[in-house]
Design a protein around this nucleic acid. Structure first.
Length: 718
DNA sequence: GTGCGACGATTTTAG
DNA sequence: ATCGTCGCAC
């Protein structure tokens, strides 16, 4: 067979990966080195050359977007829809396996996926029920605790309790939370994976079946896998199946949410794969690549990789020193205007920043300049309150025992069922082993509620019952529409929010009806015996949708450095390159976290194709207070011959004469000071104003210290 | 049971 | 500054 179409467009390293023979593979794929192309061509190669059945392949990614892109490109390359081929996210694939084997996994057939917000609400409620202090056990933190242990594959009994107080209590909450989920058939995101691992571990015949079936496993973004995901991969691989793993240890930026870069090394150790490095970059200029290489070179323990390009060196990296954050925004928007004036498109420009709070100034400046923009981040479609409310009604109508949905909407819109009444329902449900809905029916029948509450609860039951009867055989779209009308959701928002907010919510609900109308069930879900409704609900949870309704416009892109991963732009601005912001102050203490910040910087730089700007501000408003800072150490790691300073002279300490310094009699930046116990040092940062001003002093002996300027016994030396 | 003012925390985020 | 949660008054 002629396989030239699979190999023609590949370089030597890519070709080696695509055509690899019998063993396992590890593809260390640098930024912009054509990693998706290699994965797609590898799948086509396996099917067309090695004659592997599409049914015998599993390809796993982290995002739905990546899965969708891979599916589309494989289909295009093969010339057919790759039906039967399991391409999906870890969560999507685990969900499918659990649907197929719900019973054996110990789950009801109707189990529902609990998204992060539902999970948070449930945990918060349990903490209250267990009469723990929410201040001492912040629900967010407990949620993190539970998810962290699940990501590591641990059940409550498997957690080593070393502290009888705080930690033991969190384990107890985890235990209660898990019991509540089991009772009501709820599965959170981490649970999708953990259950699947346990299913395969405890059911040898199932494991044998899937090992038999999936002779080839391809895993993308391996540096982002957590312990559980690696465990799943190992289980499915067994001794005989072939792994094709793609990753880049230099782009590991999700350690804080459980990702283990070490998995790349562990994989190399456990499976002795053939290692191929993709180092030829097709995206950025030579200058950008060299600078990025030099920055990432400051990290230890790398697997080692050096990006290169056949292309031109291009423009130097522009480093801009702003007086303050407004100045920085104006400068950046000015350069974007230049870009557009030169005939380039706004959508080719991206402003990247470390934290979402930084977006505001850029939005304002872009608004003033009348340049269209799009901000990534914030709530996604299925995470919006009105959409979640409507979906909760849909869930409740479909399954009246869905307690999570019941809790969410029982009093939305307000119908006189307050905390008091709901607590009684919970109480009754708990003691009699009923769902909240069943408890509500029972208490009404027994006349066990206050007259007013009884009437309100009765009306709610009638509403849900009526809808359920009416919509038994209805199509998804009309059902959704009817539910929104019958529940008066829009009126509910109209009564309590500003008109423009209400309008937006109304649009989203219209969009939701449209989404329900146009929903078409994925082939694989149908195969797994799911109803269209179940598929729709699962998709809403697993693919929360876009951040913004797609008005496909030619927009400047604003996003965090994290969300920029995987994207590329001809013109990139990295803003807020300041110590404390980037690297973030919470990351500088631990070397491991600092290394991750540096990788984030590397990711940001390698997004740029033609022109890269880095900027920092000497001062900016942070949490309502002015704070001063020095340029990021990452800027200092750029080789000088690759950069061009704009407005130089302000970039070095002590600050130049034009730098604004508050006249408050406290030692300014750069001042030499003496402390009775720490010795002599230099003032390097200050935060806040007046008596609260905190200053950071680099002491020659004692190192960096934060001091309250008004109280610290400091003596000015210069 | 609902609505408003005080209080405190505030990196990154897919599924 | 800003947002979300809590406690108190209607």
């Amino acid at each position: 067979m002629d396989v030239s179409h699979l190999l023609d467009e590949l370089n030597e390293a890519q070709r080696e990966a695509v055509t690899a023979g019998s063993g396992h593979m590890l593809v260390l794929a640098g930024a912009g080195s054509g990693k998706t192309r290699v994965l797609v061509h590898r799948i086509a190669w396996l099917i067309q050359v090695e004659h592997v059945s599409p049914m015998g392949l599993m390809a796993v990614t982290f995002t739905n977007k990546a899965a969708g892109e891979m599916r589309g490109r494989v289909g295009k390359l093969l010339g057919i829809a790759p039906n039967g081929l399991w391409i999906g996210t870890f969560h999507g694939i685990c969900h499918r396996l659990l649907r197929l084997h719900a019973r054996e996994a110990g789950l009801p057939e109707t189990f529902q996926i609990l998204d992060s917000e539902d999970q948070y609400r449930l945990i918060r409620r349990l903490i209250r029920d267990m009469e723990f202090d929410e201040g001492e056990f912040p629900p967010r933190q407990v949620q993190g605790f539970i998810n962290h242990h699940k990501d590591e594959g641990r059940r409550p009994d498997e957690i080593e309790v070393w502290d009888q107080g705080f930690q033991a209590s969190q384990v107890e909450i985890y235990r209660h939370y898990q019991a509540a989920c089991e009772r009501t058939g709820l599965v959170d995101f981490a649970e999708l994976l953990l259950r699947t691992v346990e299913l395969l571990r405890d059911r040898p015949e199932r494991l044998a079946h899937y090992r038999q079936r999936f002779g080839h496993l391809l895993i993308d973004e391996f540096q982002d896998t957590n312990t559980l995901q690696y465990a799943l991969v190992r289980l499915l691989a067994g001794d005989d199946n072939r792994l094709f793993v793609v990753g880049d240890d230099d782009q590991s930026i999700y350690g804080w949410r459980g990702a283990r870069v070490e998995n790349v090394q562990h994989y190399a150790r456990d499976f002795s794969p053939l290692v191929v490095r993709l180092e030829q970059n097709y995206r950025s200029t030579g200058t950008i690549l060299e600078a990025a290489n030099r920055v990432i070179d400051h990290n230890d323990d790398r697997m080692g990789k050096n990006l290169w390009t056949e292309g031109e060196p291009g423009e130097p990296i522009r480093v801009f020193a702003a007086y303050n954050a407004e100045d920085e925004a104006d400068f950046i928007i000015g350069r974007i205007e230049d870009w557009i004036r030169a005939g380039r498109k706004p959508s080719e420009a991206a402003v990247l920043y470390r934290s979402n709070a930084q977006s505001r100034l850029f939005e304002q400046a872009l608004l003033r300049a009348d340049i269209p923009y799009r901000v990534y981040g914030g709530l996604r479609f299925f995470e919006r309150a009105e959409v979640k409310d409507a979906m909760a009604y849909l869930r409740l109508v479909h399954n009246r025992d869905d307690d999570s949905a019941f809790e969410r909407v029982v009093n939305v819109p307000a119908r006189g069922i307050g905390q008091r009444t709901v607590a009684e329902l919970r109480q009754a449900a708990g003691s009699r082993g009923l769902s909240l809905y069943q408890a509500a029916v029972a208490l009404c029948a027994e006349d066990a509620l206050a007259a007013r509450a009884r009437k309100a609860v009765g009306a709610f039951i009638t509403l849900i019952d009526g809808l359920a009867g009416e919509l038994t055989d209805a199509e998804l779209g009309p059902a959704m529409d009817r539910i929104i009308q019958a529940t008066d959701l829009i009126e509910h928002y109209r009564g309590r929010e500003a008109p423009d907010r209400v309008e937006a919510r109304e649009e989203n609900l219209t969009e939701l009806v449209r989404a329900a109308e146009t929903f078409s069930q994925p082939f694989e879900d149908e195969q797994a015996g799911l109803s269209p409704l179940a598929s729709f609900l699962a998709q809403a949870a697993l693919e929360a949708g876009e951040h913004q309704a797609e008005h496909w416009q030619d927009c400047v892109q604003l996003m965090t450095l994290h969300s920029a991963k995987g994207l590329e732009f001809p013109l990139v601005f990295m803003a807020g390159m300041e110590e404390g912001l980037f690297p973030h102050s919470r990351s500088v203490e631990e070397p491991g976290r600092l290394a991750e910040e540096r990788r984030l910087c590397y990711v940001g730089m390698t997004r740029a194709m033609e022109l890269l700007y880095m900027s920092f501000a000497e001062s900016r408003q942070l949490h309502g207070q002015t704070s001063f800072s020095r340029p990021s150490r990452f800027v200092g790691e750029l080789p000088e011959h690759l950069t061009e300073s704009i407005r130089p002279g302000l970039t070095t300490r002590p600050a130049g004469p034009t730098s604004p310094q508050p006249e408050d009699g406290l030692p300014p930046l750069g001042a030499q000071v003496r402390h009775p116990s720490f010795g002599d040092g230099t003032v390097v940062e200050r935060e806040g104003q007046g008596a609260n001003t905190r200053i950071q002093v680099h002491f020659e002996q004692a190192g960096p210290k934060w001091l309250i300027a008004g109280y610290a016994p400091l003596e000015r030396l210069s």
